[in-house]
Amino acid sequence: MNIFRFAGDMSHVVSILVLLLRLRSSKSAVGISLKTQELFLIVFVTRYLDLFTTFYSLYNSFMKVAYIASTTYIIWMIRFQEPYKSKYDASQDSFLHIKFAVAPCAGLALFACLVKGELSPIDILWTFSIFLEALAIVPQLFVLQRYREVENLTGHYVFFLGAYRGLYILNWVYRSYYEQFYRHNWLVYVSGAVQTALYVDFFYYYVVSKYYGGKLTLPT
């Protein structure tokens, strides 16, 4: 564990808490992408199968369970609970059909694992989750774009999620310098970089809006 990784994890936790607060305070999921939440749940469930095979630490196991549980709860709220359910407008969230994200990532993961000779289902699903995570935020970014004016807490949610990914890049740099038996994984680096790059545009407008104290409005 290093400071960047821990700060990244905490930023991720804060983003989830902000999202829950955002849903509860506005009593609506308008501006929130259910698709992004569902993609994240697929990511967590496929990546954290090692909960059953490998024990790293109590911290690690607790966080994994917390991510799965909180994301499941958020999806349940939007899909089945009032008033979120009836206010949810699926047509705002039409970008990127889940299968068009899942299928290419599954194909790529299978290919990558064949090349690396990692043929266990757990390895293949882990690699799949690395690729899918890079795409998971895309529907949320499109929902933001659709409404243009971003509600305060929704903006914070995306900001903390992006900060988490940015901090993980610093964590990899740190680990490669200071951990003796650290092994690079370029697939993780590349999809982590792609994922972080997706947030850059949002970050720019977020920081500018905070600096000038105005509303966060995205350009057309």
């Binding site: 994890d9 266990s120 757990i122 951990e179 994984n185």
Partner: peptide, 10 residues
């Protein structure tokens, strides 16, 4: 299966 260090991350 723990071929890379990233596997212990969240």
């Amino acid at each position: 299966s723990s071929s890379s260090a990233a596997k212990d991350e969240l």
